[in-house]
Design a protein around this nucleic acid. Structure first.
Lengths: 244, 244
DNA sequence: GCGCGGTTTTGACCGTGGTCAAACCCCGGC
DNA sequence: GCCGGGGTTTGACCACGGTCAAAACCGCGC
């Protein structure tokens, strides 16, 4: 919680944050940022494998990734899991909790991470006086929805290798927006997580990585994935059904 | 657009509307409703198969189903389609358009339907002065997100017949909330639509309907689906991974 | 009534990707 | 260094559900 706000520092630290979103024309003014920041709470970093919030806990806040990576997933009564998304710096989590006051999914770190906590009560106050912030929040939520939708399309009826191709391309694009090298990915999640996210078996994912390596598209080594032929990757993705 | 508002009539006509949501503790006051209603525009009924808004059109409004049923879907460049959802009276559509000013999907009627149009510019004005409405809108959007998520879970790794069982049960529950008979469904969508929604082949859906009929769970006749053994249906769904 | 077209059902066959199992590899701990 | 274990890769086999095709059914218009 910053009391005396250094706007430049904020701009540096929070440039990628979904809420601030300096890139957008609809961004917030300096005054808005002061108000908003009052509802932001820094948290202690979380170690790998720790739970930020568990499915079912009473909703209290939204969270934005500051550093690291997390996954969100729902867990059925039989222990079956479905991963909903992977969250990189700037991504927001916890929106689903608004509807019935409880988080509908668990958020867990994939590596040591730190997040900002936006307590909802305070955020609500802030938005009440700041139409721009309110609109911005709406947009962010809408973005999350569209995100889910493209995930859905992937799961719908796509070939296994197209799913993986889409996944890699999406990760590459996200890395680019974070100013990371979009052709040398270090994936924070396991093969099992990728497989689950894509609705495949982990063996299938492993095989496909192999296949794409033989095809000269990728160079894969555990968590490290180099994209050698972006053009061929795009080709695998085929006629886009993409958005967002 | 009602100029002199009859609250009782509103309550009667709009009782199921996601936005009004009289059932909820967080519902809106009479005054709020007046303000809100200023942004509501009735529209001419749409015939079966008509498009409410096409994918890619500039975003201008949210829509709430008043009567009938619609589907929303995304269309890839190769003509491949993925249905995102079926929308019954009270359901909201078009939220995805907020993020980048264009609707990310098409909304099309499954039967003759009528909808309310909530022009976003006016809605924004209304929410600026009504924190309760604003919160309500957030909740509705959050609900849409959670909805997508459970769709995602279905597509993830579930057996074909479990998918269909979930689908039928969900429809039954939605019908119940609309005071329709939850055991005698008249499905407004085709087998093809159901199959696409569930990520299956339409033949598979047809076969599964047959199978569940032989098992004495359902009685199926084209669009009419009777649920004979709700207990067995629930059993098929198995350990719930459900929410919303 | 009849015949047409679209939807649904049923059947036979086949392929993608899942399952089971073993080998492998890399990293961390002792 | 050596060993141990989780994550990953590879292989062999198989089943679920997809595909192709034809028949049946139903509603609708003439």
């Amino acid at each position: 919680m910053t009391s005396d706000l250094d706007l430049d520092e904020l701009r540096r630290n929070c440039g990628y944050c979904a809420i601030h979103d300096f890139q957008l024309p609809v961004g917030l003014s300096a005054g808005d940022l002061h108000t908003l920041n009052a509802s932001v709470h820094d948290m202690l970093p979380l170690d790998r494998g720790q739970t930020l919030f568990p499915q079912g806990r009473k909703f209290s806040a939204l969270y934005v990734v500051r550093a690291g990576a997390l996954k969100t997933f729902v867990e059925g009564s039989e222990g079956d899991v479905q991963i909903l998304g992977f969250h990189l710096p700037g991504d927001i989590m916890g929106i689903g909790g608004l509807i019935n006051e409880h988080y509908p999914c668990t958020a867990q770190t994939l590596e040591r991470s730190s997040v900002c906590e936006l307590r909802y009560a305070q955020l609500q106050e802030a938005t009440a006086n700041l139409p721009a912030l309110n609109h911005q929040l709406m947009r962010v939520i809408s973005g999350a929805l569209v995100n889910e939708q493209s995930h859905l399309v992937l799961m719908g009826k796509q070939q296994a290798q197209r799913r993986l191709a889409f996944f890699i391309r999406r990760m590459s694009d996200r890395y680019a927006r974070l100013s990371r090298d979009p052709l040398a990915l270090i994936l924070p999640m396991s093969r099992e997580d990728i497989a689950n996210y894509l609705g495949l078996a982990l063996e299938t994912v492993s095989r496909l990585f192999g296949k794409m390596e033989s095809a000269g598209i990728l160079s894969v080594n555990r968590k490290s994935v180099q994209i050698l032929r972006r053009d061929l990757l795009d080709e695998l993705c085929g006629g886009d059904i993409d958005m967002a």
